[in-house]
């Protein structure tokens, strides 16, 4: 039973998070107060949403390095929209940000699909293009809190049934992605394309188109995160979330999503993001310097990858009859 549990990546992550939280509680009991844990979750919400999008892309054997730049561009456009038309309803701003994000994702997807350029090259290119676009739009000027409308800034913090909208939104996205991954043909296609692209072709799955949709999805989620980020921190400028793409990929990797494609789950992505979130929130509390924090985050990533690599190691061919179907 325990051996089986240890083989289950998600269960292992839950245990790792629990152990980590318990260790922190030893030195700083207030950390485990329900209110604080909810705050940690809320703090990690944006990372969770982004990791869900990245998960879809990585499952298809691609990668999206442009997510953070996409987020920054969509966030900036949302903020500019709000300053130009303060009366515009916020849900409309969110939909616009998501649509723009999806469009930017489509650009990635089209380049990967139709021009057959390696995904890492495509998104490395669009990463700089999207950041550059922000500069072109703003001439490098910031949009500060006082320029944004009250409603724009208030929505993520708005309390519904004891939790802020930001938390609820991330929960909604988890639920949405769970349904997409386990209950739609598209979710199945993500796994199939990453697991064995050649076989997927023969079963009638269009590999390129499936990847295109994965990028659309990650783009839309980056767009949503753009609004959430800008409104939550009440500031928009060229460099917001710079380098955050690495956190997103790290969350996926920690969550057991195989960079080689085909393997991974919604629960894994969420737990991977949460583990990173707990570390980032707890380390300052127990007085560890920011530089040590980076080293610790890096160590966690490598440990996670090593554990996953062990689990994924090729088991070799099944030839012995008794080795079959355990």
């Amino acid at each position: 039973m325990t051996a089986k549990l240890l083989k289950n990546r998600e269960a292992l992550l839950v245990v790792a998070i629990a152990v980590l939280v318990a260790l922190i509680a030893l030195r700083f009991p207030a950390f485990v107060a329900p209110g604080n844990l909810a705050r940690v979750y809320n703090d990690t919400s944006i990372l969770i949403i982004l990791a869900l999008g990245q998960m879809a892309v990585i499952l298809t054997r691609c990668i999206d390095l442009s997510m953070a730049a996409n987020l920054a561009l969509c966030g900036m456009v949302a903020a500019m929209l709000n300053t130009a038309f303060p009366g515009l309803p916020i849900p409309l701003v969110i939909v616009t940000a998501m649509a723009l994000g999806a469009l930017l994702g489509m650009i990635n997807g089209t380049l990967v699909w139709k021009l057959d350029i390696p995904p890492i090259v495509v998104t490395l290119g669009t990463l700089t293009i999207y950041r550059g676009l922000i500069f072109l739009l703003t001439n490098g000027k910031w949009i500060n809190a006082h320029e944004m409308s009250v409603a724009f800034k208030a929505l993520p913090r708005l309390d519904i049934a004891g939790a802020p909208v930001l938390s609820w939104l991330s929960l909604a996205m988890i639920a949405l992605m769970f349904v997409v991954m386990s209950r739609t043909a598209l979710g199945r296609a993500f796994h199939a394309v990453g697991g064995n692209p050649h076989a997927a072709v023969y079963t009638g799955i269009d590999v390129g188109r499936t990847r295109f949709f994965a990028y659309c999805l990650s783009g839309a989620l980056a767009g949503l995160s753009g609004y959430l980020w800008v409104s939550r921190y009440a500031v928009a400028y060229v460099d917001i979330a710079a380098g955050f793409e690495l956190d997103i990929i790290a969350a996926c990797v920690i969550g057991g999503i195989s960079i080689a494609g085909g393997i991974g789950s919604v629960a894994g992505a969420v737990l991977g993001a949460l583990l990173l979130g707990v570390i980032k929130n707890a380390l300052p509390v127990i007085n560890i310097s920011p530089f040590a924090q980076m080293a610790i985050s890096g160590t966690v990533i490598i440990i996670a990858v090593a554990v996953n690599a062990r689990a994924e190691r090729r088991k070799g061919r099944v030839i012995l009859r008794k080795a079959e179907a355990v």
Binding site: A192, G195, N196, H198, A199, Y202, T203, G262, I263
Partner: peptide, 23 residues
Amino acid sequence: RQGAIIGMPIFQNITLPSLSHTS
């Protein structure tokens, strides 16, 4: 190379080209 998708459960491998009938 072109047949089974390793890492996917047996039933999902079988229904992959028939998903329009099972949904």
